[in-house]
Design a protein around this nucleic acid. Structure first.
Lengths: 189, 189
DNA sequence: CACGTTCCGTACAGTACTGTACGGTCCATC
DNA sequence: GATGGACCGTACAGTACTGTACGGAACGTG
């Protein structure tokens, strides 16, 4: 398992990030897990932060845009909503990475990436809700609520898996969640 | 500001926990912020983990049970729901502490506390939803969704405050959120 | 005002990590 | 089969933290 590429370090960094947060993206532990010494790392990257930055950029490209593209291919707006939530909830873009990112949102390296991703996703959601007939402000509110639900759901699945079986694979609960988000009540503010 | 009590260290620990997570509950930085040296700490506590444990226990007592008691005093079940969400969202029990805890859910000290709190809250929510007429399984699902929304909401408020004005004090969005959670659709799974 | 308790400062030892410098190894290519 | 670039190991210096040991100050009570 000798001779690593830059990408090896990036994927290892994302895995560590998902498990232990920003603090876990440390050179020594990663090197041990990869079976090399830090000599390898400092050849590929300038420093610890460079690794973190590049790993996050890679995730921003892969994880977020890919899903949006897949859903945008559909035509029926309500089908788009259902499909989006199903994909987002069940596929779990990068194995519990999101909770870790949200948790370290104050980190100067994480913050801008998280900001961009959140913005893009909520904007996309807002469009979808507008597409099924919600007025503008209404759609924006519903998008915020729906995105919060998504964030909380993956967060809980990771935090208390045994305690809350609903968030961890229960078919009925999942269907309920998707329907709840795809069919918002038309509440007058 | 000399001569501290044990409680001084506990509250300082909770503040640090909210800001920087479990890793920020470190003796040296806390001592600096409190204007003393570590000599003080090791008189009050056996070690770092003792501080973390006692701080979490204190939070579990204060934060969670108090809110439930206040809401339980009301009679109308739907008013209970509204009141609960309003309190939970606006008062923010302990200043962004929850996101930090969820983030470090794998920490052996955090895990049991978080498990108990989540269990208690979801059970309480389930009762409330059953109280407004939802059948049992339905109520449980809705409780999970609602709690996820709450978790995500406070999480987002802390993570991307500028980006998502909805989650940070917007009156209309807040009202929309509360109504969404207090008036679930009656979806047949 | 002595005196024990409560609380804090300081010094020491130990651990885990970050960066840097440099020497060495593997490997394709010519 | 030598040569140069890609890759890794090792040693050194520096930082930030945890615990422990112990001496001493501050304080309330007799």
């Amino acid at each position: 398992m000798a001779r690593l590429s830059k990408q090896d370090w990036l994927t290892a960094a994302l895995a560590a990030l998902a498990e232990g947060g920003v603090g876990a993206v440390a050179v020594v532990p990663l090197a041990q897990r990869l079976g090399v010494t830090r000599g390898s790392f400092y050849w590929h990257f300038a420093d610890r932060q460079a690794l973190l930055r590049e790993a996050l950029e890679w995730w921003e490209q892969q994880g977020t845009l890919a899903v949006i593209d897949r859903v945008a291919a559909l035509t029926d707006p309500r089908a788009k909503l259902r499909s989006l939530f199903e994909i987002a909830i069940t596929e779990d873009p990068a194995g519990g990475l999101e909770p870790a990112l949200v948790a370290h949102a104050d980190d100067p390296t994480v913050a801008p990436v998280l900001r961009r991703v959140t913005e893009r996703r909520v904007a996309f959601l807002t469009d979808l809700y507008a597409g099924i007939g919600l007025p503008a402000a209404h759609a924006r509110h519903q998008a915020a609520v729906a995105y919060a639900t998504y964030v909380g759901w993956v967060q809980l699945r990771r935090a208390v898996p045994g305690t809350l079986p609903e968030v961890a694979g229960d078919e009925d609960a999942l269907a309920y969640l998707v329907e709840s988000l795809a069919n918002p009540r038309l509440i007058e503010p």
